[in-house]
Each structure stands twice: as structure tokens, then as C-alpha cells.
Nucleic acid binder design. Structure first.
Lengths: 214, 214
DNA sequence: GCCAGCAGTTTGTGATCACAAAACGGCACT
DNA sequence: AGTGCCGTTTTGTGATCACAAACTGCTGGC
């Protein structure tokens, strides 16, 4: 019982859920790793009941895989599944960006520029989880303006499913191609150019995933 | 304890989950209706534990809403949320149809034609749930060929969120506009025409939802 | 050397219970 | 008649336990 943070004011299963979700989304758990309810429960100092709820909730979102016998593990994605999830990203995210465009004021764009610089630093520092997290934050910051919570939720579901695989991606990419793509997105936002915004987002989203598939 | 079917070979929470999911997706529960864990547990002759799991799982999929205090209810959708979900359908489903097109052999198309006839009958008979269920079956039959399980899962999530609201839609539409749209889809499939298939699917998907929003 | 079988252990499932917070209903007071 | 208050009831949360199925590893036979 390592006694984790124990976020106050939250139910036990909620805080466990958030921790796990963040870990998975940020690639801090390797694909195919297996978890046990008792293990998670003990690690967070709670009983099995809230651990089961958190796990099932994540399984419903595709973040975890349940074997027929109920065993829990992070999914190890086959190439065609990765392709599919990449296609989903390039379907959903340009739409979100497009909807956010009319509402993207300059303070937001400045913030996105800051995040881009930050990403460069994290990548150079070799902080994989930090890189993934901040990269997603870049996108989420924009998409929040779309006023489309259901659409954003679906996009996050896709991120979640790709999470464990993301770490493998990070190990392979070494040049900061993210910066270029992000700068294109920022430029399109500043110009108010919807067509090139969609294009830039699609490119940013697929560029990384493409090199993961062979 | 009404002793529901009790599907054999399935865990308690799984069968409860499936029943509830089907009911919600087919519009058999009105928007805003509230459920209780003890109520569901008793209705299915199980304890609260599996009832909670089923409910949380459905909440994670957006099929149910949990109040801050944990109360469970079906969501009552505002117009802008309906518009968003409709946009998601018209984003995802043409893509699914397009991916299914090369794999749609004539036996499948014949089956879809049968289903269309069946839908007409159900609509004339005033069977709302049957109408919704069969209508979704029409779409699912096609999309299964897309070999894109993650994409299909997202689409079903959207259906689920629209479920309770669907009944209200059914009450308003009386002319079988579905037939026309479905026939267009079938024609495009037979012709192998991707562009008009995408168009027909988008039209079918949005035509019903549009009249719901005013 | 390999594989089948068996015992011990791990692990998920579901029931039950104690508890606290929220919702409800009635009552008195203004 | 409306409104604030308090006791009762309802309802979700989480811990614990018994149980069965799955997994593990070892052993003996071929």
C-alpha cells in the first residue's frame, strides 16, 4: 500500500480512474501489460470494488482490454487497428479544429505557441510521457473552443486507445517534426484559413502514426 | 424480482448491461428517466454490485448520465447536443459505408433490401422500438463489412447517446422517408458509386435528426 | 526431451453489510 | 398560501467475504 495522492473530495474509484486514464493516455504503461484488481486496489489503498469500477470504465472506453476470463491488460494494437485509429483522428480532429477556428482568439493561439516551444524542450529532454501529454494538451486547447463536447470525448477515446502504443512511437521519432506541423496549424489559425487548417491538423495527426506502422 | 431472461453463460453484469443498452439504444426509455441501482438489481434478480458495473459502463459510453451525487438517469439532450451527434453520424457513417463498399457483395445488399421492407412494416404497425432497432440493423449490416471495429464502436456510441431522444423523433415522423433514403443507399451500393453512397448515407442519417431540432 | 496431469495459488465475480449523503415529506411558522 | 426546517427514507459508496474459474509450476511418465 504505497498510499497514492488520494485526491481529496473525489470518490475512490474516480481518483483511481483518473490516475490510470492519465497513465494510459500518456504512454506510461506498455502495450500488453497486465493489471490485477487486487494489485491496483492495494496500490491505491482501496478495496477491490472501486478498482473494478475504474477498470471496467476504462475498458468501456477501449483503454483496457478484458480477456474472456476477465483478465485485464492494456491492448497491444495490430497495424490495421492503428491505421483505423489514425483514420479516426484525421476524421474527427480536422472537424474539431474547423469548428474551433471562428472562436480562436489570439490569446489561445499564443498559448498554443508556448506549448509548442515546451514540446520541443520535452522531446530534447527525452521525457516521453511529458511529450505525449503536452502534445495532446496542444490539441485539446484548440478543440475545447469547438464547443463540441461529445466530439471531443470521442477524440479523447481514440487518444486513449493509442496511448500505450504512443511510447513505441516516441522511441522511433527523434527529429521534432511536431514543431513544423504545429507551426503550420498556428499559422492557419492566425490567417483564419479553414482549408489549410484542416490540412495541417490532418498532417500533424497522421505524420507520427504513419511511421509506427512498419 | 421479475426474473428477467437470465441469459445463460453470461456474467450477471454482462446480461444486465446488454438489456439496458438495447433498451436505451432502441428508445425504450424516455429521456430524463431516472434509474436506481437497487431497482435494477432487483428487477434482474442480482445484487447491487453487477448493477453498478453495468450502469457505470453505460455512463462511460454516454448512454447514461450520472448526477454529481451519483444519481443515474438517461440524458435529456439539448438541441446543440443533438446537432453535434448528428454531425458525428454524418462524419463517421459515410466513412464506414465507403470502406464497406468494396466488400459489399450482392447477398448483403439483398439482405439490406429485405430489412428496408421490414422497416416499412414496422413503421406502419407503429412499433417504435422495432423501427429504431431495425433501422440501426440496416446500417450495422453494412458497416460490419468495413472491417473497422473501432470506428463502428464509436458510431454505436453515438447511436446510444441518441437512443432515448429517438423515440421523440419517431412520434413526429409519419411518412416513410426512411425507405427512400435506404433505397438510394442500396442503389449506390449496386452501382458501386462511392460518391453517391456517401451522400445517400449522410442524407439518411441527418434527415431524421433534422426535424427533431425544432 | 517433451508433454500431460495435478495441486497450489492467483484472480475475477457477486452477495452482503455498514455508512454517509442526498432526497423527500410533513409540519410548524410567518 | 408560501417557506424554512427536521426527521425519515432512499440511494450510492466502499469494504469484506465466499466461491469458482483460470493460471502456474512442478512432477512423473513416455
Amino acid at each position: 500500500m504505497t498510499d497514492r495522492p488520494q485526491d481529496p473530495g473525489l470518490t475512490a474509484h474516480e481518483s483511481l480512474y483518473r490516475h490510470l486514464r492519465a497513465q494510459i493516455m500518456h504512454g506510461q504503461i506498455e502495450p500488453g501489460a497486465s493489471l490485477t484488481l487486487r494489485g491496483l486496489a492495494e496500490e491505491f489503498g482501496v478495496s477491490m470494488t472501486p478498482a473494478r469500477e475504474a477498470v471496467r470504465r476504462l475498458a468501456a472506453e477501449g483503454a483496457l482490454k478484458l480477456s474472456p476470463s476477465g483478465r485485464v491488460s492494456t491492448p497491444a494494437l495490430a497495424n490495421d487497428r492503428i491505421e483505423e485509429l489514425a483514420a479516426l483522428r484525421s476524421l474527427l480532429e480536422p472537424e474539431l479544429a474547423s469548428r474551433a477556428l471562428p472562436r480562436a482568439h489570439s490569446a489561445l493561439i499564443d498559448r498554443m505557441q508556448d506549448i509548442t516551444v515546451q514540446i520541443d524542450g520535452l522531446m530534447r529532454a527525452g521525457d516521453a510521457a511529458g511529450y505525449i501529454r503536452t502534445n495532446l494538451e496542444f490539441h485539446r486547447n484548440l478543440y475545447l473552443r469547438a464547443q463540441a463536447p461529445a466530439m471531443l470525448a470521442l477524440a479523447e477515446t481514440v487518444w486513449l486507445q493509442l496511448g500505450p502504443t504512443m511510447r513505441a512511437l516516441y522511441a522511433r521519432l527523434r527529429r521534432p517534426s511536431a514543431s513544423e506541423n504545429h507551426n503550420k496549424i498556428i499559422a492557419a489559425l492566425r490567417a483564419g484559413d479553414e482549408a489549410s487548417l484542416r490540412l495541417a491538423v490532418r498532417q500533424d495527426v497522421t505524420s507520427g502514426l504513419r511511421m509506427l506502422m512498419r
